[in-house]
Design a protein around this nucleic acid. Structure first.
Length: 324
RNA sequence: GGGGAGAUUCCAGAGCGGUCAAAUGGGGCAGACUGUAAAUCUGUUGGCUAAGCCUUCGGAGGUUCGAAUCCUCCUCUCCCCA
């Protein structure tokens, strides 16, 4: 959050996070009806799209009243924090305008609503916080490398929309990028621009560069030899964003079965069955080299005497560190 | 308070005494194609010491040679009436 908002109280218009529970918890039901309820007619509330659509199927009183509660939040913020603008997804439009209406009636004040359409993916996915495979801004939840990869992997269709929504490019710049992309789609101009700008904006230039480098090794023509020849400090820097597993014992002289290695020593696969399946499907590589079910992991697979790079499928990498 | 419907593997949803680790679809994972896309196609999707074995169909009991399927009780959810 600090990256996007300024919480410094010395500033004129500093950011502040509040909890609406603080001002609603002591507001009695009767008080609420008397002070807030009387200003808004049921007719007005029913007319809202969000309510109208639900009327046939049934809507609980709680849900119905929600818009009033949200309106009150806005009023409270207007009164106490000089808040004049409420932003939200387009489904919040009705609730927000009930708030502006309330402010107008009670305080003769002026407040504003800003909504944006729900962002969807081309495959229909919702891009919501509950959807699988989404990204977080927090590097603890989504590493810069993964974050970068996420944007790099967006489909053409999505990329064109996302670049308008998530970056600060001007209209002309966007149009130029789109044009260039259409000329040579395989160069993925849009995805690159998206990934670069967002990674730098959310994380940092340094993280961006590291992500690009890691990507080149991982997706480029990286070979076992290249991996072995990388200086250790570069190697570890490269895999900063890659999940790491540590094994606190030396590999036995005779090595261990890959299946045990993948599912027991590390948790790269949730079960041995799953590991075997993927191995059978030719989906696992160690140090950039595909392996099968009968592979034995041993000392000679260690890079710099302690690292092993495991690849599951095309895109998931894991770094295993063996501490002996 | 009265009446009815239901709870199945990640989700939706079949199954209604053996052939059920459980149809089908979605999602996930992997493979092919490719641009580290999309679309499409293929395989796979409980676990294990793996031609076998073990644990799953809301919970607890029971009937049976044998239960996701039948019976009893319990818990929860939904709908209708009051």
């Amino acid at each position: 959050m600090l990256k996007f908002l300024d919480f410094d109280k010395k500033r004129d218009n500093y950011a502040e996070i509040v909890n609406n529970y603080d001002w609603t918890k002591d507001f009695s039901f009767l008080g609420f009806l008397r002070e807030i309820g009387k200003h808004i007619t049921v007719n007005y509330m029913i007319a809202k799209d969000s309510v109208k659509k639900r009327l046939d199927g049934g809507i609980s009183f709680t849900e119905f009243s929600y818009q009033l509660l949200q309106a009150y939040d806005f009023l409270w913020l207007y009164r106490n924090k000089q808040c004049k603008l409420q932003m939200g997804g387009s489904d919040q439009w009705g609730n927000i305008t009930t708030g502006t209406e309330l402010i107008r009636r009670v305080e003769q004040g002026e407040a504003f609503a800003l909504t944006c359409p729900l962002i969807t993916k081309a495959d229909g996915g919702k891009f919501g916080k509950t959807e699988e495979g989404n990204v977080w801004l927090d590097p603890e939840k989504t590493s810069p490398y993964k974050f970068y990869q996420f944007w790099l992997n967006t489909s053409d269709e999505d990329a064109e929309r996302f670049i308008k929504i998530f970056t600060l490019f001007s209209k002309d710049e966007v149009e130029e990028l789109v044009a260039r992309h259409k000329e040579a789609p395989h160069e993925r101009v849009l995805q690159n621009a998206l990934a670069e700008h967002l990674t730098i904006m959310v994380h940092s230039e340094k993280d961006f560069n590291a992500s690009v480098q890691a990507s080149q090794i991982l997706f480029g023509k990286g070979t076992t030899e290249m991996l072995r020849n990388l200086p250790e400090n570069i190697l570890t820097a490269l895999f900063e964003g890659v999940p790491v597993f540590e094994i606190n014992e030396a590999l036995p002289e005779e090595g261990i079965m890959v299946v045990d290695f993948l599912a027991e020593k590390t948790k790269i696969f949730p079960s041995k069955s799953d590991a075997r399946r993927t191995l059978k499907d030719n989906g696992v590589a160690i140090n950039k080299r595909k392996i099968n079910e009968h592979f034995i992991v041993s000392k000679k697979d260690l890079i710099k005497n302690k690292y092993i790079l495991v690849q599951r499928g095309k895109k998931s990498y894991f770094l295993v560190i063996v501490r002996s």
